[in-house]
Design a protein around this nucleic acid. Structure first.
Length: 281
DNA sequence: GCGACAG
DNA sequence: ATCTTGTCGC
């Protein structure tokens, strides 16, 4: 009952995964594609003083989702996926749901989506099927969007990270937030830091990430203070980098945007509460 | 060939 | 990702 295939011997199948990524990638939309707007821009002329109805002349972005998965070292067979939704205006959590699972796919750099997307997608579909009134209009993902090495030849093509992958599966606009730089197209952490420091105080600590090839992969930001570790923003699906960057700014109370930060904190807490029975009695 | 490599 | 307390500062 234990036969290993000659060439591929585990659940890790780089070739099949790369092909799957390439297929999904064909559906990727790299521009703003949604019906809502950001309040800053919609009323540029003058506030019609007439009836200030809540009439939705134009729907506004109100609910922003965040997803993440936390893992337990004590119990490697236990992980916790989470979906949170925050109200943009107040940055308060208005929805949260957890999913304790056993990781079945290992983490392989470049293929994070095959490990995490199924869990996160399930949380989204559950919420959607329940007709929740706060279903997110936009999703922030703990991981990269196009800032990602797509297979081996990324020099001419944008990547396809978890944020892209999940965005397509869920058909939602997504923004990828990396807390570490995935080295692609010649980008290095030291190079990014130099650019950030050379910025002085011009662009609020945001710079565009351009690789050796000239391609734009995303943006780096030191949202807080001076010398903190930057975060790395890249578009996932149905959004432009410009819009993504603006929304990140709106949600950055601390270094990491609130939807991601809250997802991080809460999934970790939830995991602790659900593993207290494993090693102790 | 070797190292690098989101979470 | 995970292992980890206090501590310095606004």
């Amino acid at each position: 009952m234990e036969k290993l295939s000659p060439s591929s011997s585990s659940s890790v199948d780089h070739k099949a995964w790369t092909e799957a990524q390439d297929l999904l990638k064909q559906k990727l939309i790299a521009e703003d594609d949604f019906s809502w707007g950001l309040d800053s821009k919609s009323n540029s002329k003058s506030m019609e003083r007439e009836e200030e109805k809540e009439e939705e002349r134009e729907e506004l972005l109100k609910y922003v989702g965040g997803v993440d998965i936390s893992y337990s070292k004590e119990n490697p067979s236990m992980a916790c996926g989470i979906l949170v939704v925050l109200e943009l205006k107040t940055l308060q959590v208005v929805y949260q749901d957890f999913c304790v699972v056993t990781p079945n796919v290992p983490y392989v750099p470049g293929f994070l989506a095959f490990r995490e997307a199924p869990v996160l997608l399930e949380l989204l579909e559950k919420m959607k099927n329940n007709n929740s009134p706060v279903y997110p209009q936009l999703l922030m993902v703990d991981g990269n969007g196009i800032l990602h090495p797509r297979g081996k030849s990324f020099d001419k093509n944008p990547g396809f990270g978890l944020a892209c992958h999940l965005g397509i599966l869920a058909n939602l606009p997504t923004i990828g937030i990396g807390k570490n730089l995935h080295h692609v197209d010649g980008l290095t952490l030291s190079g990014v830091k130099q650019l950030l420091e050379a910025q002085e105080d011009s662009a609020e600590g945001f710079i565009t990430l351009k690789g050796c090839s000239g391609r734009t992969w995303g943006a780096a930001a030191r949202s807080t203070g001076g010398s903190l570790k930057p975060i790395f923003i890249s578009t996932g699906h149905r959004i432009s980098l410009d819009t993504a960057t603006r929304i990140v700014k709106m949600t950055c109370k601390f270094r990491v945007p609130e939807p991601i930060r809250q997802a991080d904190i809460r999934s970790r807490d939830h995991l602790r509460k659900h593993q207290t029975r494993t090693s102790k009695d």
